[in-house]
Nucleic acid binder design. Structure first.
Length: 376
RNA sequence: GGGGGACUGGUGUAUCGGUAACACGGUGGUCUCCAAAACCGCAGCGCGAGGUUCGACUCCUCGGUCCCCCGCCA
């Protein structure tokens, strides 16, 4: 359990002159029930790549689904981030639908959370520009992800790639989110966005916390799922071999083949040990999909050979993912319905982000003054 | 600002004005709980737009991206 901060972030932000319900006003039909309009707000950005794998699913997507019951979840399909590297326009559209369908299939409920496409809410890009005025160029150039990606890039290294972290900061800050559940690899970007928020507040806030400085929440439960062909590296979309990656939408026969050909270690015992990363990974996978402690898996399969154990893991994973794939197929077939859901989410998101942007513009002295704008 | 070079599967390369080849990688199989090794299959490529030509990956023009050299400014 995390100890709550002395002044909860949402209270601090509230001091900026906005009654709490103003945030949520007009975005929640009264039929929807929430514990409190001031519950913790959680923002997650999801890359519109259709091929989510088991590691993504267990490590992130399951957390998203859980967070809509813990607070106010805002889930954004970040197509504007996706275009910072070479891409195909037609495919991008498709991948957004793929991703939306997958998230809903996994359990995100459009009635319970806000799910939308980044480019549908122009406040993201406007805030990016405004925030770029309080972002150090040198810091962006030193970002590890930028350096890695620009080195790997054979084609144009775009300015957008450099500005990526500013857009990411805008994503979160536009909603005054309190928590950003991202992995360790995003720590650097998150620190940047915290600094940007602090600098903005210091320069334009006039003593008030106009932008909420979000907390980095590293998901606590998420097991690290490793590559089946190389259990010393994380399962990833860009792995050398697809054999090591179980995709959420893989069919039963593919899942079975991949799990059966997972590399194992010498020996025959099904137990976790530093010298047995392969079997350890399979134990973690089975534990995660069964929602059982790994110890229980170990004792249950203590006498089984590797072969039988693998078959059991394969069966469990197939069963685990089957309903997701079925719901996905159903949802993905109806693009107009998906579009409708995304539009609804965008309207909800816009209502929040527009408020933040009005404050930011006002503080920065950009655009018409608020008093003039609100005159009849 | 000026000059030069490059661009071919995922990667690295080859070839040719006449149906584009090789290696590695990927993928399916045999073997193994697996993996690796080996063997047998399979898939995948001419940066883009024009032009010359009966025919262009090849020649020409323009554009794109990358690399190199020189100048200028400080």
């Amino acid at each position: 359990m995390r100890r709550p901060p002395r002044t909860p972030p949402w209270r601090r932000a509230r001091r900026t002159a906005r009654p709490c319900d103003a945030w949520t006003r007009s975005r929640r039909p009264s039929s929807r029930s929430f514990e409190s309009p001031c519950s913790v707000r959680i923002f997650s950005g999801i890359q519109p790549t259709g091929r989510k794998h088991l590691g993504n699913y267990i490590g992130a997507i399951v957390q998203y689904v859980a967070s809509q019951y813990r607070g106010e979840g805002i889930f954004c399909i970040v197509d504007l981030h996706a275009i910072t590297v070479p891409y195909s326009p037609a495919e991008l559209r498709e991948r957004c639908y793929d991703t939306a369908a997958l998230l809903i299939a996994a359990g995100l409920e459009p009635a319970r959370c806000t799910l939308f496409r980044q480019s549908d809410v122009p406040e993201h890009t406007e805030l990016t520009w405004l925030l770029s005025t309080v972002t150090e160029l040198g810091r962006l150039q030193r970002m590890h992800q930028f350096r890695d990606k620009s080195l790997a890039q054979r084609e144009l290294v775009s300015a957008a790639l450099l500005c990526y972290p500013v857009l990411q900061a805008a994503d979160v800050l536009a909603y005054r989110a309190h928590e950003v559940p991202v992995g360790e690899d995003q720590r650097e970007h998150l620190e940047l966005m915290r600094d940007v928020a602090r600098r903005f507040n210091a320069r334009f806030g006039d003593g008030e916390e106009v932008l909420v400085v979000p907390e980095h929440r590293i998901p606590d439960v998420g097991a690290r799922i490793m590559d089946l062909q190389d259990p010393t590296t994380k399962m990833s979309t860009t792995a050398a071999s697809e054999q090591g990656t179980v995709f959420v939408l893989d069919g039963p026969q593919a899942i079975e083949r991949k799990l059966k050909s997972a590399v194992t270690d010498s020996g025959t015992e099904v137990r976790r040990a530093p010298e047995k990363p392969g079997i350890g990974n399979l134990i973690e996978i089975l534990a995660a999909v069964r929602d059982a402690p790994p110890e229980q898996i170990e004792s249950e399969y203590a006498d089984a050979g590797y072969g039988a154990f693998k078959a059991a893991v394969a069966g469990a994973v197939i069963e685990y993912l089957a309903p997701v794939r079925e719901r996905y197929d159903e949802l993905r077939g109806d693009e107009s319905q998906l579009e409708q859901i995304l539009q609804g989410g965008a309207a909800q998101a816009s209502a929040i982000a527009a408020e933040t942007l009005a404050d930011v513009r006002e503080r920065m002295g950009v655009g018409a003054p608020r008093r003039a704008r609100t005159l009849p």
